[in-house]
Computed example of a mutant assay.
Amino acid sequence: MRKTYTILGVIAVVVLVIYSLIPDSFFVEKVYPLEEGVFVTNYDDRSDGGFSTATLAMSDSSMKFECMLGADTTVPAWCGMLWNFDPDTLEKFRNWIFVDSVIFDVETSGTDEILVKLWAYDPDVTDLKKPKTFRLLMKEVKVSGGRERIVVPMEQFYTPDFWYEDAQVDKELNKRHQESMARLEIAPGWNHPRGKSFSIVFHEVSVKGISNFWFGAVLFAFLGITIVAVGFRHHKKNEDKDD
């Protein structure tokens, strides 16, 4: 019996060693160019009496977003653009649980910072009819102007305090819910001046992560080892009873 457990232990160690030697296997998921079923749009505050403007123009190889916050400081101002991964409200969200970074190939002008926002479906708080109840994950991203490749690690996205207040959510409910990503949003940085236009040309947007295939294979191997070990243990008990 000890010999059997020793063999199983050696097999487990070998599995772990092999797993540690396997190079990371990455996957990449495109956000732009747009895939079928994804909707992208721009928005501004004009429908609420504001004076901001936002435009979105697409060509064969790029997408240009322009935005200017209204100059009148007596009224709130906002503008931005939004990728909707579930425009038909069928709860077909993107599973980004293994995503480790969001990557932008962009060309910027007129600004040194943008806000990147991810909105995730949170089953504890999200009402599909109320967009603000989707969980907000946000990151302020510095841009240098001109064309650049920007990589934003997922771990840097955070849920700001104002979201908990706006959605009336307990701060203890802090799970990220990357398995249910609903939208990606781009907005002006916090200190972007009123009345100044800025633009972003998107050449490519994608997310990258580490594939879970080999992790699953290791779990399956350990499940097999466990089943064999338990089987031998029960077999030994039965033999002892017969004796």
Score class of each variant (00 low, 15 high):
residue 48 D to E: 12
residue 148 E to M: 09
residue 27 F to L: 11
residue 1 M to R: 11
residue 90 L to G: 05
residue 48 D to L: 15
residue 176 R to V: 07
residue 91 E to A: 14
residue 205 V to W: 01
residue 130 K to T: 13
residue 220 F to L: 15
residue 116 V to G: 03
residue 150 I to G: 02
residue 2 R to E: 14
residue 31 V to N: 03
residue 113 E to R: 12
residue 112 D to A: 07
residue 230 V to Y: 06
residue 91 E to Y: 05
residue 25 S to A: 11
residue 32 Y to E: 05
residue 40 V to Y: 04
residue 173 L to R: 13
residue 187 A to K: 12
residue 78 W to K: 12
residue 196 K to G: 02
residue 162 F to Y: 15
residue 107 E to L: 06
residue 167 A to K: 05
residue 70 G to H: 04
residue 167 A to R: 05
residue 49 G to T: 14
residue 20 S to V: 08
residue 119 W to G: 02
residue 234 H to C: 06
residue 120 A to D: 12
residue 217 A to V: 15
residue 141 V to K: 03
residue 109 S to Q: 14
residue 60 D to M: 09
residue 55 T to C: 00
residue 136 L to Y: 00
residue 140 E to N: 12
residue 126 T to Q: 06
residue 174 N to A: 15
residue 100 D to C: 07
residue 105 D to C: 07
residue 136 L to H: 04
residue 92 K to D: 06
residue 106 V to S: 02
residue 88 D to F: 08
residue 37 G to V: 10
residue 57 A to P: 00
residue 4 T to K: 10
residue 89 T to Q: 10
residue 178 Q to K: 07
residue 198 F to A: 05
residue 43 Y to T: 07
residue 241 K to C: 02
residue 106 V to Q: 01
residue 161 D to A: 14
residue 216 G to W: 09
residue 3 K to N: 03
residue 176 R to Q: 12
residue 72 D to R: 13
residue 127 D to W: 06
residue 117 K to P: 00
residue 172 E to Q: 13
residue 7 I to K: 09
residue 232 F to C: 09
